[in-house]
Design a binder for these strands. Structure first.
Lengths: 211, 211
DNA sequence: AGGATAGTACCGACTGGTTGGTATGTTTGT
DNA sequence: ACAAACATACCAACCAGTCGGTACTATCCT
């Protein structure tokens, strides 16, 4: 047996993974440190060895979340970017986002969105992290938006439209959590994506890109 | 002193009032019963005399919230309803909603929206109440929408548009909580109100109603 | 080589404070 | 007198965070 590597996932990573999952499902306040440890298969001693506090773990989770979302965005543009025009890239990005958001397996709850509501007035550092997640996602989307607008020679407030996109997703997720009806996500987000394409000046043909 | 009436606000009402306020600001989980009692100036014994549990109070708060929102909606339509056409009523309703939502004194946090995120997976009864609040608000808005669509002889999915309206508000409030920037609310909600009016088939003149 | 030293990762019993809820008694309106 | 409306003291469970200790490895001194 010549070192048949069996990577021993380090405790911090296991804790972050479990934290993201539990915080998303039960919220920051309602998730006890013990539950995170149990889910990660790690002792409490190890937890506080690697993280100064529960809040510190939450911050790390937020970073992880942003990393994941950035990865998803990058993964998309890498696939669709080959030779396609900017409007098509934007349109397919939005269409794929809908499918991604509506899939209960991968999504159905946004970490910063869930967290910021509870801790907005009590944990300034965590609020700031949540805001950063939104800002980063905003910027990534705005890039696609600006390219499309430039291609169409239209002058639009890409900042406002990007905020609308992020906000629509957050709102749709809340309505989903209340109603348990995934169709809200699809309905709301696709309405807004139509509106955005229209503001950019896309033709009807461009709006209806293949999946 | 011939009974110079000084209505002795009953304890349940005081508790509901304080509950709505605290739950909105700190969330359901992070708000201790003691804090609600202190804010209401009521003893803990009185609390559990009137409410079976913390969850029962939260349900009552949710009802109170719905009542308030319904009152606001009714108050509006009573003012604007005199002889005005349905499209104008809808347009001014949405415009006034923006001002209402963006005013930190009266709003900046929605009780069912804040609550449902935390308790969606742990308190089914509370989740159902939150959903009811959304449904009721949805129905009230859909009425305005249907009247306007009927007036314009346009066929639109008023259910979808009403969900979009509610969702947009929820999303805008999350982004506001993260960024502390009220302009997100104004920006997002007015974009969607433009979209809705456009779907209804309103003229540009109708879209730009006086405040 | 090998023993002392030090640093890192980890364990789990424990602590001090908090929480939702209760038990028991007192006041108040009728 | 009797019940509803309160008040106070209390409890068991729970929670974030601590602390003394162990196992393992790396480094250094002789």
């Amino acid at each position: 047996m010549p070192k048949t590597a069996e990577k021993p996932v380090p405790a911090p990573e296991k804790l972050i993974f479990a934290g993201v999952d539990l915080f998303r499902r039960h919220g920051y306040v309602a998730t006890p440190v013990d539950a995170i440890c149990a889910a990660a298969g790690v002792s409490k001693g190890a937890f506080f060895h690697h993280f100064a506090s529960k809040e510190a773990l939450a911050e790390a989770c937020m970073d992880k979340w942003d990393e994941r979302m950035a990865g998803w965005d990058a993964g998309h543009t890498a696939t669709a970017g080959d030779g396609a025009d900017a409007v098509t890239i934007l349109a397919t990005y939005m269409r794929r986002s809908i499918a991604f958001l509506a899939d209960p397996k991968t999504f159905a709850s946004c970490l910063p969105g869930t967290t910021v509501q509870e801790i907005s007035e009590s944990h300034p550092a965590l609020r700031e992290r949540s805001n950063q997640c939104f800002t980063k996602a905003h910027e990534r989307f705005q890039t696609l938006l600006a390219a499309a607008a430039n291609e169409k020679q239209t002058t639009v407030d890409t900042t406002a439209l990007a905020r609308l996109w992020i906000g629509t997703i957050q709102g749709a997720l809340i309505l989903f959590k209340a109603s348990r009806d995934v169709s809200v996500i699809e309905s709301n987000v696709s309405h807004v994506s139509q509106y955005i394409l229209q503001q950019i000046g896309a033709t009807d043909a461009e709006k209806a890109t293949e999946s």
